[in-house]
Amino acid sequence: MRAEELNRSVQDCLKTVWLAQEWSSDAVTTTGLAQQLGLSPSTVSEAVTKLTAQGLLSRPGRSGIVLTDRGRDVAVQMVRRHRILEAFLTSRLGYAWDEVHDEAEVLEHAVSEKFVARLEVLLGHPERDPHGDPIPRRDGTVPPATGVLLADVPAGSPVVVARVSDADPAVLRWLEGAGIRPGTELVPGEHRSRGMSVDVGGTVVEVGVLAAEAVRVRPRD
């Protein structure tokens, strides 16, 4: 199914379910989905019922809300559009990485698959967006989302930033100022109740809890 065959609210709902499961194994609930979409639980519950009847979602027992194969196809198309647009906005139009999410949210509903494919070629087929999230390929496959939370890494273990959550623009701006981006090499230091210390290229930075939980890292080669 092509994403453009569905209206914006359906596209957003399916994409949000997919994103909720990208970095977490927790079940997707009506309440959680409502919080992410900024809608009331009753509105979301009604939408989920309709999308289940259309074969785009299912609710298998205690597994919460789950995408069907058709629903996943649409969700992945929307995630692909969003992340390629973010890559374009940062690399070609000079947007900061804390600005691109909202712009891409608007544009992803207006562009065609042909347009997105041409952007992908123009950008050299990027595998990650500016925040390190994997960009789904045109065939629907997705590069693996790897990495553990920086907050969970023991002191003294050299790591490389793999991904930074774009949920909070203020946190992104702080991380930018601290020099922490995908590809940055870090050495975690002492963990404290309010965060942790991190060595960034020889400079020790005090990273708060919110920032430490927004960064995912992988072992340094």
Score class of each variant (00 low, 15 high):
Asn7Pro: 12
Asp139Lys: 04
Ala3Pro: 05
Val204Leu: 06
Trp174Cys: 09
Arg137Ile: 11
Gly202Lys: 06
Glu4Pro: 10
Glu4Leu: 06
Arg80Val: 08
Ala47Trp: 08
Val160Met: 12
Gly38Thr: 12
Glu213Ile: 04
Ala155Phe: 05
Val116Arg: 06
Thr49Pro: 02
Ser9Lys: 13
Arg81Met: 01
Gln35Ile: 06
Val74Ile: 15
Val121His: 13
Leu122His: 13
Arg59Asn: 07
Lys114His: 13
Pro219Ala: 15
Glu176Trp: 02
Ala96Cys: 05
Arg92Asn: 08
Arg173Asp: 04
Val161Glu: 07
Phe88Ala: 15
Glu206Thr: 15
His191Cys: 06
Glu5Leu: 14
Glu127Trp: 11
Leu85Gly: 01
Ala151Lys: 03
Thr90Pro: 06
Leu19Thr: 13
Val10Asp: 06
Val74Gly: 02
Arg181Leu: 13
Met78Ile: 15
Glu127Asp: 15
Ser112Ile: 08
Gly61Tyr: 12
Thr141Arg: 12
Val111Pro: 05
Trp18Lys: 10
Ser45Phe: 04
Val200Gln: 00
Gly124Met: 11
Val148Asn: 08
His109Ala: 11
Arg8Met: 14
Leu172Ser: 09
Ser165Phe: 00
Leu51Glu: 03
Arg80Ser: 04
Thr16Asn: 02
His125Ser: 15
Trp18Arg: 12
Gly55Leu: 09
Gln11Leu: 10
Gly64Phe: 10
Lys50Ala: 10
Ala167Gln: 13
Asp152Gln: 07
Arg59Gln: 15
Val44Glu: 04
Val159Gly: 04
Val66Cys: 08
Gly195Thr: 06
Thr16Ser: 14
Leu107Lys: 10
Ser24Arg: 08
Asp168Gly: 02
His131Ser: 13
Ala104Ile: 02
Leu93Asn: 06
Val204Trp: 06
Leu67Asn: 03
Val204Asp: 01
Leu56Phe: 06
Arg92Ala: 03
Thr68Arg: 04
Asp69Leu: 14
Ala117Val: 08
Ala155Leu: 00
Leu122Ser: 09
Val106Ala: 10
Trp23Tyr: 14
Ala47Cys: 11
